[in-house]
Simulated scan of single mutants.
Amino acid sequence: MRTTFDAEADAVYMAPVPEIAPGRSARNEVVETSGGTVVFDFDQAGMLLGVEVLGATNLLSGAFLAGAERIDQQ
């Protein structure tokens, strides 16, 4: 599973599928928490495509974030 972290946006994206083609995400479920927001992306058949965590430094451990691919440093 590919996990990316953008420190500037304080956002993590976890994708259990190798690639998400444009337009494949058909439905989003948003969960608001006191520390941030979690968005689940699903395709037309209901398959989970990815999970976005906004407010990642509040909701995820530092060890988890350290292991993610940094996309804000490219």
Rank of each mutant, 00 (worst) to 15 (best):
G67M: 07
Q44G: 09
V38N: 08
Q74R: 12
R70G: 12
I20N: 04
L49P: 07
M47Q: 13
V31S: 02
A26W: 04
T3A: 05
E19D: 10
A68F: 02
R24S: 09
A26H: 04
V38M: 14
D41K: 14
V30M: 14
A7D: 01
M47K: 12
Q74L: 12
A56N: 03
V31G: 03
V12R: 00
L49G: 07
T57R: 14
Y13N: 05
A68W: 00
E29W: 15
F64S: 15
E29V: 14
Q44V: 15
L49N: 07
D6S: 01
L65Y: 11
D10K: 04
F42R: 15
A63Y: 11
T57A: 08
V17H: 02
R70A: 15
G50P: 09
V17D: 06
S25N: 03
E69H: 03
F40T: 11
F40S: 09
S61Y: 06
L60S: 09
P16N: 05
Q44M: 13
S34C: 13
D6Q: 00
L54H: 07
P16T: 06
M47G: 10
E52Y: 05
N28D: 09
N28K: 11
D43T: 15
A45P: 05
L59Q: 07
F5K: 01
E32A: 02
R27S: 06
G35D: 02
G46N: 06
E8L: 10
F5N: 01
V38I: 13
L54K: 06
P22I: 00
P16D: 06
G46T: 08
V31E: 07
L65T: 15
N58P: 11
N28T: 13
P18A: 03
G50W: 06
T3D: 02
L49E: 04
M47S: 13
A56M: 04
I71A: 11
A45F: 05
D43N: 11
R24C: 09
T57L: 06
S61H: 10
A63C: 12
A26V: 01
L48E: 05
V30W: 13
R24Y: 09
A11N: 04
Q74H: 12
R2S: 04
R27E: 09
G35T: 00
N58R: 14
P22Y: 00
V31P: 02
F64I: 14
E29K: 13
A11W: 00
Q44C: 10
D10N: 10
A15Q: 08
F40L: 15
A15N: 07
L59F: 01
F40M: 08
D6M: 03
G35S: 00
R24H: 10
M1D: 15
A7Q: 03
G50A: 14
D41G: 15
E8A: 11
V51K: 05
I71P: 12
N28Y: 08
V53H: 00
N58Y: 07
A66D: 14
P22H: 00
Y13S: 01
S61E: 10
G62I: 08
I20L: 03
V30N: 12
S34Q: 12
D43Q: 14
M1S: 13
Q73V: 07
V30G: 14
E52A: 10
G67D: 11
A68I: 00
A45H: 11
T37Y: 10
G36F: 11
A68P: 02
V38S: 06
V53N: 02
A26Q: 03
G62D: 10
D43C: 15
G55Y: 05
A9G: 11
F42L: 15
I71L: 12
L60H: 08
M1Q: 13
V53A: 01
A66W: 09
